[in-house]
Simulated scan of single mutants.
Amino acid sequence: MTDLDDELWTAVAEPGRRRLLDVLLVHGEATPTALAAELPFTRQAVSKHLAVLLDAGLVTQRREGREVRYTVEPDRLHDAARTMIAAANRWNARLNAIKRMAESLHRAEEHEPPRA
């Protein structure tokens, strides 16, 4: 796993940041002030969350006069979804292997002669 993947997991692990991404996806582009108006966070908290999302490459920013506007980076969001799907598939494979081992042990115990 790369540092960028670690930043991705850190960014999306926090429910507030996922919610911020959802709102930003609806708007397409927004300032921290506009986002704070729709979220249960202060503008300062929104800015901090945006900084984490920016570091992870999930959003981009552009300056328009005195305002900074943020947009979701669709390619990175797509990469993030693929990374999470791959991780989920690895965990499913591991859990299925554990399940098969447990079932095998259970079947072996059923066929053992009773202990005296």
Rank of each mutant, 00 (worst) to 15 (best):
L54F: 11
E110R: 14
R90W: 01
E112A: 14
A34K: 12
H106Y: 13
R63N: 07
V46P: 03
A97W: 01
E73T: 14
L53I: 06
V46Y: 01
R17H: 02
R76M: 03
A13D: 13
I85W: 01
E29P: 07
A80E: 03
T31A: 08
T10D: 15
L8E: 04
E67W: 14
H78L: 03
G28S: 05
A51P: 02
A51H: 12
L35E: 01
V52P: 05
A116S: 07
H78M: 04
W9C: 04
D79I: 00
T83W: 05
R17K: 06
E7T: 09
H27P: 00
I85Q: 10
A88I: 08
V52W: 04
L24Y: 01
R76N: 00
W91P: 00
E67C: 03
R43W: 05
A11G: 09
A11F: 05
F41K: 14
D6T: 13
L53P: 03
V26A: 10
D3H: 08
M1Q: 04
V26W: 06
V46H: 04
G16T: 05
H106M: 09
T2W: 01
E110N: 11
L39F: 02
A37T: 09
R19C: 06
H106K: 09
V52Q: 10
E29S: 14
N89Q: 13
P32W: 00
W9Q: 06
R17Y: 02
W9M: 15
A93W: 01
P15N: 01
A81M: 10
A34H: 10
T33C: 07
R18N: 07
R43H: 07
E110V: 08
M1T: 07
P74S: 05
Q61D: 10
E14R: 13
D5F: 09
T60W: 05
E7L: 15
L77F: 08
A81G: 01
E109A: 15
A13M: 11
L54H: 14
K48S: 11
G28A: 04
G57K: 02
R63D: 12
E67P: 07
V68E: 13
E112K: 13
A56G: 02
R94T: 09
A102N: 06
A80Q: 03
Q61N: 11
A45I: 02
T10P: 09
P15T: 11
V12S: 02
A51D: 07
P15F: 03
A86M: 04
L54V: 08
A30W: 02
L105D: 13
D55P: 06
M1F: 09
A88V: 03
R69I: 13
H106G: 05
N92K: 14
R94F: 00
V23M: 10
T83A: 06
R76C: 00
T31I: 06
H78I: 01
T33R: 15
L105K: 14
R18P: 00
K99I: 09
H106N: 12
E14Q: 14
D79K: 08
H78D: 05
